Amino acid sequence: MDLLRLALYQPDIPQNAGTLLRLSACLGVAVDIIEPCGFVLDERKIRRAGMDYIEQARYTRHSSWEAFVATLTSGGRRLVLLTTGGEVRHDRFPFAPGDTIMVGRESSGVPAAVSERAEARIRIPMRAAARSLNVAVAAAIATAEALRRLEGFPDEERQ
């Protein structure tokens, strides 16, 4: 089982998806892409954003929310939704091995039924005047905090 996974719910901006696939490659966190996407997944913009890291990223495409939930359930994974409406701050949340952090669509987040399915809803604290962070930035912040807590950062040795 992966220590941590990142799920993208129906992403609609290819540059953000590419950035998160690059994050996957660099930090060793697998990504679940829940379709339909708002773009063609192999679109040139994803390759440009992910650069040459795309080939190193580990990701799974799920044809629907239901297909993703079936995989999540069979793997015994906990779904943690990153949302501006989260009840718990990301830096106070007790991440556990096997968690899947999910981010919603850039344009609309996730539907209520998806939010209700999450076992936890977390948020990143921001100034009151701010609405939200870019989804790729928010996912990177939460993923890094979870890896820090789980002592799951990759080995930094370089050759």
Rank of each mutant, 00 (worst) to 15 (best):
R5N: 04
F93G: 02
D32F: 03
A146K: 02
D2M: 08
V114A: 13
T84M: 06
R58C: 14
R131F: 14
R131V: 15
L41Y: 09
A25D: 00
R117M: 04
A130I: 15
D42H: 09
I54T: 15
V80L: 10
L27F: 14
Q159D: 14
D12C: 11
R92N: 12
I13T: 11
R89A: 15
T100E: 00
V80E: 04
L82S: 00
A30G: 07
R127N: 15
A136E: 11
D32N: 07
Y59C: 10
V40I: 15
G109E: 09
E119Y: 01
V110Y: 06
G104A: 14
Q15W: 01
R77G: 02
V88I: 12
R78I: 06
A96H: 04
K45P: 13
D52F: 12
I34G: 00
V69M: 11
V103A: 04
T71N: 06
P154N: 02
G85N: 14
L82N: 00
V110E: 03
A67E: 05
A96M: 08
Q56I: 00
A70E: 10
G76N: 11
I54M: 15
M51S: 12
Q10W: 07
A17Y: 01
P125D: 13
A70G: 08
V69F: 05
G104F: 07
E66I: 13
F93E: 07
D52P: 10
I141N: 05
A113G: 00
R61D: 03
P94E: 02
S24I: 06
L20S: 01
G28D: 03
F39V: 06
P154W: 03
L21E: 01
A138P: 01
D99S: 05
S107A: 11
R77P: 04
S24K: 05
R92Y: 07
A136K: 01
P94Q: 08
I13S: 07
L72P: 08
R58P: 08
R117Y: 09
L6M: 08
A139F: 10
I46V: 15
R131G: 14
E43P: 00
A67G: 08
H90Y: 11
L41M: 07
D12K: 12
A144P: 05
